[in-house]
């Protein structure tokens, strides 16, 4: 009986959590302009999304979103991994302080990060656009990469770097041939995390995109909704993004599980 209640509670909770996205998913397979009207099964919204009939705005927003995410994730993976190695080699108080500084941006509300970056770019006289959005995304993604690389470094046998030097590797060769292969799983998780964070971001993007007409998905949808009703094609788009993120998350978790299992052997 107890088990039954526990199970029911869990399923109700999950249903409530996922109801909105499931509804969007269901209604992406009908043609109705207004959400909530079921006018029969159709994949027309999907075909129109990809055939470009929705106008350039949405497509370029999708393109911007993904290119920004890829650049931001790649750069922050490099920066974050280097930073993690640096922090790992620090000792005592210094290390604690730097770790704290790394954690603050993650706890800081996005809106604050957005406004402060906006003010920074203004004061420095940098005209805002694609570049500033990429820089801003790198800034808030890097701490997450540091966080996902650190545990790998801590698990590593501290002598293997020295062993590489001892066998004739220069410090750079030792980094490339020994340290990076060891922390690669953490770097990949960090990259995926940074990628999803970047795609997902609204608050920081809206403050740093400038007024040259640059739109990412989130800002496009926001603007679109304010103009009077959502473009119906956003329903299949949301569904696709949700499924993509879901798959990425599953990959991260499976990888983590597998790494853990390997550790236990």
């Amino acid at each position: 009986m107890k088990k039954f209640f526990a199970q029911t509670y869990l399923w109700i909770l999950l249903a409530l959590l996922y109801a909105p996205i499931i509804i969007i998913g269901i209604f992406s397979f009908t043609e109705a302009k207004v959400l909530g009207n079921w006018t029969g099964f159709s994949t027309k919204l999907y075909t129109s999304l990809f055939s470009g009939r929705v106008g350039g705005g949405l497509l370029s927003a999708i393109e911007n979103t993904f290119t920004i995410a890829i650049i931001a994730a790649a750069v922050s993976t490099v920066l974050g991994s280097i930073a993690a190695i640096g922090i790992h080699n620090m000792r005592g108080k210094k290390r604690q302080i730097i770790t704290l500084f790394n954690n603050i941006p993650m706890l800081n509300p996005d809106i604050i990060t957005g406004i402060s970056l906006f003010l920074l770019f203004i004061t420095m006289g940098i005209s805002q656009g694609y570049m500033t959005v990429v820089l801003a995304h790198i800034a808030f993604c890097t701490p997450y990469v540091v966080l996902s690389v650190m545990p790998r470094l801590q698990q590593m046998n501290p002598n293997i770097y020295e062993a590489a030097l001892d066998l004739g590797a220069t410090p750079f060769q030792a980094l490339r041939k020994v340290i990076i292969p060891e922390i690669r799983p953490g770097m990949i998780s960090g990259f995926i995390l940074a990628f999803t964070l970047s795609i997902d971001d609204f608050a920081v993007t809206i403050f740093t995109k400038g007024n040259e007409g640059l739109e990412t998905l989130s800002t496009f949808i926001y603007a679109d909704a304010r103009k009077g009703g959502l473009t119906p094609e956003l329903r299949p788009l949301s569904t696709i993004i949700f499924v993509t993120v879901l798959i990425l998350l599953i990959i991260i978790n499976v990888r983590a599980r597998r790494a853990e299992r390997k550790q236990n052997i």
Partner: peptide, 19 residues
């Protein structure tokens, strides 16, 4: 620097490259 010294070390905790 260590990589230019003509000597090699056997470490206490082996320090083999796991990958």
């Amino acid at each position: 620097p260590p990589h230019r010294r003509p000597l090699n070390t056997v470490f206490q905790r082996y320090a083999l490259f796991p990958h």
